[in-house]
Design a protein around this nucleic acid. Sequence first.
DNA 1: TCCCAAGTGACACTGAGTACCGCTTTCCCG
DNA 2: CGGGAAAGCGGTACTCAGTGTCACTTGGGA
Lengths: 200, 200
Amino acid sequence: MTPSVPGLREQKKQRTSDQLRLVALELFAAHGFGAVTVDDIVVAAEVSKTTFYRYFDSKEDVLIGTATEKLELMRSALLSRPPTEPALDAVRNAFLSVAERYEDERDRNMTVGRIMRTTPALAARNLEHQAAWEELLRDFFAARDGASTPGLRHCVLAATVVASLRTAMDYWVTEDAATDLPTVVDAALRVTVHDLGETG
Amino acid sequence: MTPSVPGLREQKKQRTSDQLRLVALELFAAHGFGAVTVDDIVVAAEVSKTTFYRYFDSKEDVLIGTATEKLELMRSALLSRPPTEPALDAVRNAFLSVAERYEDERDRNMTVGRIMRTTPALAARNLEHQAAWEELLRDFFAARDGASTPGLRHCVLAATVVASLRTAMDYWVTEDAATDLPTVVDAALRVTVHDLGETG
DNA sequence: TCCCAAGTGACACTGAGTACCGCTTTCCCG
DNA sequence: CGGGAAAGCGGTACTCAGTGTCACTTGGGA
């Protein structure tokens, strides 16, 4: 399927995609998301609008499009956890392995985070991915319980855990990654799993 | 400020707004959200597009615009809880009082829920409100802890509780409100507060 | 060398949302 | 009553996101 040595064609595609992402990020950071049009981006990247939309589904996608890859990473990470591991531990460990990728792109994530905090529309679009994560975890929790279809309990578990992980990410970004991501994630999950039970 | 007897002008405004909401809901239910344009709505409601956008910020807003009112309801409900009440109980009770309004609009909520489940873009827009809810609860939890600024713990609590409440609402809607909303809410919060602590 | 398929750009289009402006209606005050 | 300020409305023209089409170039394989 994928050749070991990617041909010239593939290289060009990769360059175009990278260039669009890079240019868009610079423009967004400089002038704000709303003040930059897709036309601005394609002119700066020297491609046509058609090409832009061949690579990205939307203007938002050029910024937060990597989220889909992260989800797939999470899916396979979950599948590779031992079936005997408690469900919550499996989610925690799977997420931490995925989170390494976030730290790899630390600088980019900081910039994206800064842009996102100043653009409500973007934050909303980002929440879209949350639904996909919840679905993934919902099915995972249900499967671990041997249930064919997720019940209220699985839905609530999925929703709360995703909320907890998202909060950890947000916190990590707003703190300029001063703390290790795993530490923040652990702290967040600890609140969810322990403090919550005691408080109520 | 607001006259006890709303003048003719106010009555007309109310009628126009109601008419737009009603007509839009019918069209969305009949043909799907994506297949209905704002032009379709304003033609059916016999107003101009200009007028539509004077009443609603966006096409989505005509469907889920009442969410903002619910947030304010929640805010005042929270404020009127006794300060000695445990934070989580206060949130639960405040939400249940707000939830009565949801049951009042039972039929409408069912229809909106059905449309929303088949329209990803709408679900996303709905999640926008979640951020506002989280902010509200974040500040509330922080205030109850005597903290001037919310910490990670307050953020996680807010996020998980909101996620839990939202899941309860979703579940309630997908079950065609077969169960009492308070029952579902209680069950969801019980998962969050108890089961989660035991599982981990 | 030639051919096919993939990728691209130009163009035209729909639909959301905004800005402006002139007209009608309501309201209020004398 | 009557007349003027102000609120509300409709029409038009606009920007920008996103889609579809088609003719062209360019890479890769035979």
